[in-house]
Design a protein around this nucleic acid. Structure first.
Lengths: 237, 237
DNA sequence: ATATATAACTTGTATATACAAGTTATATAT
DNA sequence: ATATATAACTTGTATATACAAGTTATATAT
């Protein structure tokens, strides 16, 4: 009924999602039918359907009565929003690359941190790093990450140019993001932000403050500044 | 098993949601238990649970094992995001009021409309109106609505200062929003936008282009400009 | 080769039933 | 009045079963 302590509907959800993210089930393909998955996972249809409902809700698949479940193309995401090109000529928005502006380093929290911290979190201190994300060589996001310094071994020594921070946490440390929140504003670019994003100073920039809640005693905070002249954020509901 | 043509899990979802929105179940209160609702709606637990799962997913309730389902306070929403004050001293963000800048009027589509239109939609033309939304007298959103002119009787004669456009569609015309999408950018305020929002020209403004898909052959488009110096948009995932 | 009817698949909706795990109310002992 | 154990509630997880409604594959007739 469960695998270890994980309920089967969660096991099914995670497995299918992982297969989608790793292109085992590519975008636009049909997932195995519900009956096939019952055999695969050795559970019954209501359990499979619970997992599929959540996958559909999270945007990974779309279900059609009588036809099957179609895998949706994975978009680059920023919290609840995905990044989309002003011109769709890029296909899947071109390749997203990352430059590390400031490598991960242990330091005290900034004085006026954007989210309230618990006393425990304050006492741990934080690890911070700065990244620039580019699509086709054009900088579109400048972000500053802070995570609680709960003494994750060798975290600061790892390379993040080619690996997602969150997939590193998941794969190397078995730390999963459970949920999160984002605050969104528009600000005029400061000199520093303008320099990183290669836009004129005072140009309008999206400012996103996000907090991710994980399966361990670890919150990950991100402050992202996005240039939206050639790319925008997209949400559906 | 269904009510008219509506499956019971949807009837349950709509009824509970309506009761929450109309304060029959106020924020922070306990919903009736699943067993009580089975009796109320004359269905079984899986059907109730399907509706509750969706209510929780949409942010209306939060469920606690062994305890019950707590109604969440309703926030003013803009698509998938809610409006939150920079200072939470406002409680539920103060009162949101609406001024109609331009009353609903039938007119041709703008030449360079933000979303692609079908030939059918183009031939119908549109109804458009402009609104200003204020919190505690401070303008925060200037929005321009276009909806396809499918000949909704007396639509242009109705008052929208005190009524939601979407609740008017739902209650007077039985037209429900099914889903939608939003594109989000930051722009520098033009002279017109600055005037409406009472901010300096060229100040950074959130620009949201939204399309709502309804139960009838009607799409509703909204172009919103948001001042985020005292309020910001919030999303959770 | 083509059209049509039907079989066989798919997802959608729903009831019935059972037990696990968490919280709250109540009974009892002191 | 207080502490503790237990009963009674809640939501969480899951199997079993059946039929509805939509799509696709196949069989058959021409």
């Amino acid at each position: 009924m469960t695998e270890g302590n994980t309920p089967m509907h969660r096991v099914v959800y995670k497995t299918i999602r992982k297969n989608i993210e790793e292109n085992v089930y590519p975008g636009d393909s049909l997932l195995p039918s519900e009956n096939e998955m019952c055999a695969l996972f050795e559970v019954t249809r209501p359990t499979i359907r619970q997992a599929l409902t959540r996958l559909e809700n999270d945007g990974f698949i779309k279900r059609y009565q009588g036809k099957g479940s179609i895998v949706q193309k994975v978009h680059h995401r920023l919290g609840i929003l995905s990044i989309k090109g002003v011109s769709q000529v890029l296909g899947t928005q071109g390749s997203l690359t990352t430059q590390i502006i400031k490598k991960p380093v242990v330091e005290p929290w900034p004085d006026d941190f954007m989210f309230d911290l618990t006393p425990e979190e304050k006492s741990y201190g934080c690890i911070s790093m700065k990244r620039l994300r580019l699509i086709n060589g054009k900088p579109i996001i400048f972000d500053i990450v802070h995570l609680v310094n709960i003494d994750i071994p060798r975290f600061c020594q790892k390379k993040y140019e080619k690996r997602s921070l969150f997939s590193t946490l998941k794969n190397d440390y078995n730390i999963d993001v459970i949920n999160g929140e984002q605050n969104i504003r528009a600000i005029n670019a400061t000199k520093e932000i303008a320099k990183h994003l290669k836009v004129p100073e005072r140009q309008a920039i999206l400012h996103l403050e996000g907090a991710h809640y994980t399966s361990k005693n670890l919150r990950v905070f991100s402050e992202a500044f996005c240039s939206t002249d050639r790319f925008y954020l997209h949400g559906s509901f």
